[in-house]
Nucleic acid binder design. Sequence first.
DNA 1: CTGTTAGCGCCTTCAC
DNA 2: GTGAAGGCGCTAACAG
Lengths: 337, 337
Amino acid sequence: MKRIKRAVTIHDVARAAGVSISTVSRVLNNKDYVAPETYEQVQAVIKEMGYASSLAARSMRSRKTGVIGLVVPDVGDPFQIQVMRGINRAIAEFDRDLIVYTGGDFTKEASADRERYFVSLLNGSITDGMIIVTPAANDFSSVSPVVAVDPNSHNSDYPAVIATNYAGVLEAMEYLIGLGHRRIGFIGGRPELQSAVQRLQGYKDGLQQAGIPVDPDLIQPGDYRRETGSACAERLLGLPSPPTAIFGANDQSAIGAIEAARKAGLGVPDDVSVVGFDNIPEAAYMNPGLTTVDQFIDQMGYVATEMLVRLIQGEDLDRELYEMPTELVVRGSCRSL
Amino acid sequence: MKRIKRAVTIHDVARAAGVSISTVSRVLNNKDYVAPETYEQVQAVIKEMGYASSLAARSMRSRKTGVIGLVVPDVGDPFQIQVMRGINRAIAEFDRDLIVYTGGDFTKEASADRERYFVSLLNGSITDGMIIVTPAANDFSSVSPVVAVDPNSHNSDYPAVIATNYAGVLEAMEYLIGLGHRRIGFIGGRPELQSAVQRLQGYKDGLQQAGIPVDPDLIQPGDYRRETGSACAERLLGLPSPPTAIFGANDQSAIGAIEAARKAGLGVPDDVSVVGFDNIPEAAYMNPGLTTVDQFIDQMGYVATEMLVRLIQGEDLDRELYEMPTELVVRGSCRSL
DNA sequence: CTGTTAGCGCCTTCAC
DNA sequence: GTGAAGGCGCTAACAG
């Protein structure tokens, strides 16, 4: 490993090239006119010395760094991975760099604090702007713009991208009810997120539109995680009058529900139908495939990045809230009664 | 959103609190003695103004930032996710911050360049040290330490953590051969990585130890990705004399192989036995469970972080190469002939 | 215990 | 075209 004793600075380059630091700075930034031969000269020295300008120093002088920050609660979560994919795509396209921060396993309170900490640590100093996925915190103080993906219920004043959760669930409920299901269980999401609230509402309204009363026993409080989904489904299936279908607020919950069903010796879709929300890649891999509501996750990441870049460039947004249309994807996890 | 017009600096705080900037700096860093009442005073102002010191400025002055950088080629890969989990655990324990960079879909050449770029961008300026997972590049020029997880074959001079790949594969081969398998296919990993080289060698030597000749047709060049594993397995199973067992250089390859087998109407383990390497969580979820070699991935991440922290603190390492012992985990994906 | 003074590495006027 | 000088926000001596 070529471990250099002391970092090579713009000074070193200038000295080696026999020019002043301003000239080096100029060739670095491709601004102002530099004599072609001087340019080549300096470039050669830079390459030879393996010089790279210090992000720290650079960002201190000029407000733009070209790097975007991303805060995700859990890198292991498929939803969040998909969002990252979309962001990565956009990052490449907009010629930015991406730095991501990810918390560990924290309580809701602790993650909110970590999010705030990271925003104030990075934003405006190292980072031109940040994207926060499913924020636990509901306010951030930051010089630079912040965009949320699937925002917290209490920070609707941030620019954000969110799916048409309500409409999506409604469509899926109609499908389920059309199949003849009347007792439909629901595994909720992280209640502090708008998506979770909207999906729950869609569930209730879907029932009501069909004239089916809402049974509180059929609504289990989840948190978008697979294990929790499994536990919720277990309770649902253990009810005196168990549901014939289960709606997971996201695919992870639904997958957990399927696991619970199998563990209880129940077949999907033969004994219980299951529907999810998200359309993560796993949903298609499964056997049978999971019927779910596609919310085009990676596109959400892309759009969020696009919005953030506009804000960074000082442009205005067409709309502060981008609503990603959803689409029901029917696979094999449901059957008609 | 509380968007502040201009970032509040240490100056603003000092002025508001009626003290000098050094005093503010002192309370910030909890160093030197500050009168308790002054301390409280300043803390109050800091909180009220929502002040956060600029990482950029801070890291420019003092060589320590407390943040560790991580470069992972693909955040969507389960192996890498597990490594990150381990790193996160260590980060919390050592009271550091973690910033991760992840490339998009690049060619090998391009990712090597991106890795180098990021190391020089961050290391020594924003970051105290970096961990590189499965590096494509084989050299980095950096002031601050770099530790690799599953290193490139050509940079064995970096501190690194790697599993006992050779021994692990050997053990699995003995198991397979003990089951009566003689024609065993092999799906290789990313050939530039030491792990891939060692695993291939283990495969060959395992065969030879049992007196089974190595058939080149049975060795397919993979790249640790599921899709590639699937394609390789398809070729293997299409051979005039197909293998009765397939060894995937990692679990992703093995899972891809299982998919390919199913697509070809073959049952696992009834028609083909499959073994993987890694023991990613998915391996246990599958049905049947995947027999694989556990390399305690998250522990690798933990150890790498531990090593890096020592290096950052100027301590010496007991050994430059930490070898994580592996362990065969037998599940249901193999059967005896 | 607290304030003053140098820079850290870089970009940006302003002269030449 | 190029160099010199100032300062970004902060910490680390050095005085008091």
